[in-house]
Structure formats: structure tokens, C-alpha cells
Design a binder for these strands. Structure first.
Length: 362
RNA sequence: UGGGGUGUCGCCAAGUUGGUAAGGCAACGGAUUUUGAUUCCGUCACUCGCAGGUUCAAGUCCUGCCAUCCCAG
């Protein structure tokens, strides 16, 4: 089916507003800022420090140079306390509770489109711009909404599904029509050095992409070892603490079997890690809480397309509202959703209807 | 210590009438990735319980020993 959107021109979205570009030091936000500036937008740059690391200082130093060259004011904020409280602490607690948190799901609404957004407003900016690969679209039926980025492999709308509607729909995303490789070539063409050239692709606050190490260094009493069992109850090994594993995980279980085994359940009460075959990993639905609507629920189609993990192909599911929660029933069995992860709901043609946090699979 | 079975990479497991060690799992490495995972690619037994023997050639045949399992006890 052909999409029922149109994509407004970037400058028509800016609409003469003063735009604050959130620059991290990476390629994406840098190009976003450059593009807006070149198009004549009234641009300022804002950078939030979340960690106070060396890397963060490198980013600021590099950004100061770039912004000076471009004639853009750079404002730097220290949000380490907020970041700790709103992202890192819940992250740790979630793991402790046996869930698999998605820190980006907290960071986008609470930090980038939270405290940073508020700070930007105080500076007089009317719109916030980021380097997310998503597009603002005008939908024939739903009006203005968020749609997937043009490059399907790089689309980041999943992460924005929990950002409040009034904030995200007012944002400006200059990269929605770009591909990642274009981003690099565009920067190169302009001879712009990227302050932090390596793409952030691990949890930004966890060194070496090792969340287990990170949690162990936190001085909290993490749940201890227990048995690994099959769904039949047969004991087949030991685990080192349920917080080390996540639903659907295959690697790192250390158990040799006739066929690959996946984590299908974490039984916190009995401290059991339950493994099963790919077959057994299937689920027929999930329940989500902490729901956010980008389109009023009354207007949602009965069957939506959902994504329960980043970079997963979306799949159709029937949806209904149960009190504060969303209940999804998959049209076909699907790999089990993981509690703590985002479930994002889309129209068939890729506009974001809303999202929530998966509480449990059905 | 009577009868029968089995012993091939960490685990499971193919190995035809002897011809020069499949595959799966795990592990490790890499690719992909703004979370955790998934997925993909690559690497993984000069050696077949041990010791002899027969053969041009033995994991595959013979002998002995060892280990282990089952049934009898």
C-alpha cells in the first residue's frame, strides 16, 4: 500500500522558529546542525553532559571549535545528576528486578525531551532538533505524526515512541530522509571533523558494553546463582544470577544441547533460569504499561503493526486498552517480547501511533 | 569379573563392503546494532579409551587390557 503521508520540507517545519540543536559530538547531530544553519534557520547548539567522563570533555572541546567556525552559540548543561536519577538508577533497579531495561527509552523522554527540552525553552528556543533518523509526517487521517526514517535499517522511531506527543511533534529531525552513509559523506564533503568519530553503539554510560561488569561495580547485592532448567523441569546446569540473562538470549548460556537453547523464562521466586527451544520461545502477545500516545487511542486501527525490539521487522497485532495498559495479541506467534523493552505501535505504513514498556508476554 | 551394550573434539553425534574423521550444541573471533538480545560470517579432532597385530592402507578387521552402562545377581 502507498503511504498516506506527505513529508513537509525541513524549513517549513522550522517555520521561522528559533531551533536548538542537541549536539552530542557525534556525526548525526553535527550534520543536523549544519544542515539547519545552511538553510538559514535561526540555530543555537545545546549539549548536555550526562557522565562527566573524558569522552564528554573531548566532545565539548570539539563542539566549541565546530560551533565557533559556523558562528553558532553553544550552550553546555550539566545533567549528570538528572541522568543518574532518571536513567542509570532505574536501569540498575530494573536489572535487579529481573527485567531487561532499555535506558534509551528513559533517556529520550526524560532527558533529551525532558530536562534538556526544558532548558532549551528557557533559552528562548521554540523547537528542539536532534540527529534521530525519523521523519515528521502529515498523515491524511491522523494529522502530524512521527514516521520511520527513510533508511529502514537506521530508523530510530522506535526510541521516540515514548516521548510525549506535544514535544516530539514540535521537534525538527533533519536526518529523516538521509542514510547513515550520506551523513558521513556530507560531513566529509564539507570538511567537518566529527568531535567524537566513533558511533555510540553501546549503552552510553556502560564502559566496554559490559553491563554485567557495570552492575557488579555498583555495590549492590545482586541475586545469586541458581539452577538452569528446561521447561519440563529437568535440571541442566547452573546460572550465575538471573540479572545476567535476558529473554530470548542464546549466547553465553554455556549449555551444550542437541539444538540451540534460548532463555524463555526467568523465575525470580525460585531463582530458576528456564531454557527452551526456538519453538518454545514463541509468544502470542504482550501487555505494555507506561503507555504514551502519539495518536489518540480512539483513532488507532484495530490491528496495528508493532515492534517489540529495535531493528525487528514489525508485525501485525490486535490491540486493546485495558485500564492504563495496552494489550497486544499477535496475529502470528512471535519471538517472546522481553519485559522492560519498548513496544512501539505503528500504522501499516510506518507512522508511530505510540508505545509503552513491555510488562510481560502472553 | 556370569550375559549383553558402549567408548569418535568440552557436550550430543555421523562414520557405507577397511581408503585416509559429517553435522548439531557450546566456546572463541568478527560483522550488524543509540539498550539487552536476536541474526549473520569465520575458527575450532594429523585424530577416533589404551596397547599390540593383520593390511599398501584401520575409527572401521583381530587380540589383550581399561572404563562405563544395562540385565542377571
Amino acid at each position: 500500500m502507498e503511504s498516506s503521508f506527505s513529508y513537509p520540507e525541513l524549513m517549513s517545519l522550522v517555520d521561522d522558529r528559533k531551533v536548538a540543536v542537541a549536539v552530542s559530538g557525534g556525526a548525526d547531530s553535527l550534520l543536523s546542525m549544519v544542515l539547519l544553519k545552511e538553510l538559514g534557520a535561526d540555530v543555537m547548539a545545546v549539549h548536555g553532559c550526562f557522565l562527566g567522563t573524558e569522552k564528554s570533555k573531548t566532545a565539548v572541546a570539539g563542539l566549541e571549535v565546530r560551533c565557533a567556525e559556523l558562528g553558532i552559540d553553544l550552550h553546555v548543561f550539566d545533567f549528570t545528576a538528572e541522568f543518574n536519577k532518571m536513567v542509570i538508577d532505574p536501569f540498575v533497579k530494573d536489572y535487579f528486578d529481573g527485567n531487561t531495561p532499555n535506558p534509551c527509552a528513559q533517556c529520550n523522554p526524560q532527558i533529551k525531551f525532558g530536562v534538556l527540552y526544558d532548558a532549551v525553552r528557557k533559552l528562548g528556543a521554540e523547537a528542539l532538533s536532534t540527529g534521530h533518523y525519523v521523519r515528521i509526517a502529515d498523515h491524511a487521517e491522523y494529522g502530524r505524526m512521527i514516521a520511520r526514517g527513510a533508511e529502514i535499517g537506521k530508523d530510530q522511531s522506535y526510541f521516540l515512541s515514548l516521548v510525549p506527543k506535544e514535544k516530539v511533534l514540535n521537534a525538527v529531525f533533519p536526518l529523516g530522509n538521509h542514510s547513515k552513509s550520506e551523513t558521513y559523506s556530507e560531513l566529509e564533503r564539507r570538511g567537518l571533523r566529527i568531535p567524537l568519530p566513533t558511533e555510540s553503539q553501546e549503552i552510553c554510560f556502560v564502559p566496554d558494553d559490559n553491563y554485567r561488569q557495570f552492575l557488579m561495580e555498583r555495590n549492590i547485592k545482586l541475586p545469586g546463582p541458581g539452577n538452569v532448567v528446561l521447561s519440563t523441569g529437568e535440571k541442566i546446569g547452573r546460572h550465575n544470577g538471573l540479572w545476567r540473562y535476558t529473554h530470548g538470549q542464546r549466547k553465553g548460556l554455556g549449555i551444550a544441547w542437541k539444538e540451540p537453547l534460548y532463555v524463555i523464562e526467568k523465575d525470580l521466586e525460585r531463582n530458576l533460569l528456564v531454557l527452551g527451544t526456538k519453538e518454545e520461545l514463541g509468544a502470542s502477545g504482550c501487555i505494555a504499561d507506561k503507555v504514551n500516545f502519539l495518536v489518540d487511542f480512539e483513532k488507532w486501527p484495530e490491528t496495528v503493526h508493532i515492534q517489540t525490539r529495535y531493528r525487528q521487522r514489525s508485525m501485525p497485532a490486535k490491540v486493546r486498552l485495558d485500564g492504563e495498559n495496552l494489550v497486544f495479541e499477535f496475529v502470528e506467534k512471535h519471538s517472546m517480547p522481553t519485559p522492560g523493552q519498548i513496544v512501539a505501535a505503528y500504522t501499516e505504513d510506518g507512522a508511530v501511533l505510540g508505545g509503552g514498556i513491555i510488562r510481560n508476554a502472553l
